[in-house]
Structure formats: C-alpha cells, structure tokens
C-alpha cells in the first residue's frame, strides 16, 4: 500500500515518530499552559523561556557541577519551578484583579528579559549536550529504527501528562484545584488556601515546561531562542485543544504532533503551517476549542 502512495514504510513511520516526539513536547508544554491558565487566568508567555531555562539548567548542572542528565531530570524542574514561584509571588500575583492582557504583557516581557540575558551570556550558536550513555543507540523494529532516547521522551511525556491528568481529575487534590479554578472565592470560604494553591500550581506548570527542556537538551539545539521558536506552535495547540482544558492539551498535543508528521510525509511544504491552518478552522467552527467549554 505504501509503495502505491510512493512512500516507504521507513519514511512514514520515521516521520510519525518525529511527529510523536514533537507532540510529546507540545503536550507537556500545552499542559503546563492549560493548568496555569485554568487556575490563574494568566496566559503565560514566559512558558517558552522557562522551557529553555530547563534545558540551560540541565547544561549548567553538568558544565559547572558535573551533575549528569539523571540528576538534572529532577533538579532542573525543581530549580526552574522554584524560580516560577518567585515570579508568581513578586509579579504575577499583583495582576490577578486586572484584565488578562496585563498578565500576557508581563509574562511576554519577562520572557524577553530571560532570553536577552542568556543570549548576552551564551550567544545563540548553541551549547553541546550529549544523550546519556544509557539511552544511546536504538532498536531495529523491522519497519523502522527507533532511537532509544526518542522512545524515552515519548514514555516520559505520556507518563507525566496522564499522571497529571489523573491527579487533577481523580484525586482530592485535583478536586481542590478544580474547585479553586471554578470559584476561588467560595473555595477559600471553605477554609482552603487558594493563594497557596495558585502559587504552587504556577510552580508546577513551570516545572513541567522545565522538564520538557531537560528532555529536549540532548536532541535540540540548546540556545536562548529554543523556547521562543516552539511556544508559538504550543499556543496554537492550546487554542485548538481549548484554553484551560487539561485533557484537550494532552490529546491535542500528541495528535497535532502526529498530524504534523503525516503532513511532512505527504505534503512537506505544508508541515510548518498545518497546525495554524487547523487552529484557524477550529476557531471558526468551535471557538472554545475542541475540548473547551463555552462560557
């Protein structure tokens, strides 16, 4: 069948794998954005920079402290997540009573500052970071070659995304977060500490971005612009999934990665814009997004 279409199975599955890897990053990043938007009502434009910070911290832990990838995997999200908590406490918390636009402008400005500082110090040519030896090599599946590190990214992303979904949708903690998202005033009047929930949620969303950055460090060009290039696509993913929808962010993230991969096989010229075309169509037909609720 593939030959009929003039496509080899290796090419098709190779591109689908690439799409799935991109989708893993889309899903993790859009999940963080969705959680933050849901509870804080802030469109976190700093997200791309925080993803990039995750990758830079991974590099810095190795370069300055000799700590390997396996140390960076928990430490970088913790460090960048903690920086997110400081940002929320110092800046974002002052904007909750204002229009969304102010939060967007603030986080956009912060992203520019973070990128600018790192660009000034490290340039844009990219820093080297190797795949950990335990994950180098790959498996020959017969119809395609599966690099171990790529499989690792997909595995981690699936576990993290669906673990997060499970916590939010199926646990007591998640019920607190959903209640605080829906009616923070009443949730507070029940004795729950909503401001603390907001701060920790922002920290967690940022930590998710940083974790994606750690995963990206060995395979993508590690430079201060790496987040800015990705975040625009991720915002399109969030819009398609539905702003604030957890399941929407995950399913749409992986799904659009695959669509992008397929487009690269059948119509390579369209692969860079296919997500934006889908976004435009979804906005016309279902403005709240595929999984979003209309107000």
């Amino acid at each position: 069948m593939f030959e009929l279409l003039g496509i080899t199975p290796q090419a098709l599955f190779g591109q689908l794998l690439l799409g799935l890897i991109n989708g893993s990053f889309y899903a993790m990043l859009s999940l963080g954005l969705a959680i933050i938007f849901g509870l804080l009502n802030i469109i976190n434009f700093t997200h791309g920079a925080q993803y990039m910070l995750g990758a830079f911290v991974t590099w810095a832990l190795l370069h300055y402290f000799g700590l390997s990838y396996w140390w960076a995997l928990p430490l970088a999200p913790l460090i960048v997540g903690a920086s997110g908590i400081v940002i929320e406490k110092l800046f974002i918390s002052r904007l909750y009573h204002l229009d969304h636009l102010y939060g967007l402008l603030l986080t956009f400005g912060l992203a520019l500052i973070i990128q600018g500082v790192l660009r000034n110090n490290f340039g844009i040519s990219g820093l080297p970071y190797s795949i950990p030896p335990q994950l180098s090599g790959g498996q020959n599946l017969g119809f395609m070659f599966l690099p171990n590190y790529r499989a690792w990214i997909i595995l981690v992303s699936v576990i993290v995304c669906f673990g997060t979904w499970f916590v939010i949708e199926k646990t007591r903690l998640g019920a607190y977060l959903r209640a605080a998202t829906e009616n923070p005033t009443l949730t507070g009047a029940f004795g729950l500490n909503v401001p603390l929930m907001i701060t920790l949620t922002y920290g967690f969303g940022v930590a998710l971005a940083a974790l994606a950055g750690v995963l990206a460090a060995p395979i993508y060009s590690l430079n201060p612009n790496m987040g800015a290039e990705l975040i625009i696509v991720v915002f399109a993913v969030v819009v398609i999934g539905g702003m604030g929808s957890i399941l929407g962010a995950i399913v749409t993230g992986f799904g659009l990665g695959l669509v992008e991969g397929l487009t690269r096989v059948f119509y390579p010229e369209g692969s860079a814009v296919v997500i934006f075309v889908i976004m435009a169509i979804v906005l016309l037909i279902k403005p709240a997004g595929l999984f979003g609720r209309t107000a």
């Binding site: 007591r172 019920a175 607190y176 959903r178 209640a179 998202t181 829906e182 949730t187 029940f190 729950l192």
Partner: peptide
C-alpha cells in the same frame, strides 16, 4: 466541575 461526592468532600 466536581461530582456530588467531590462537592460533599471538598
């Protein structure tokens, strides 16, 4: 966004 049980236990 919460079930009856989740509302009750909130």
């Amino acid at each position: 966004s919460l079930s009856v049980e989740e509302n009750l236990m909130l």
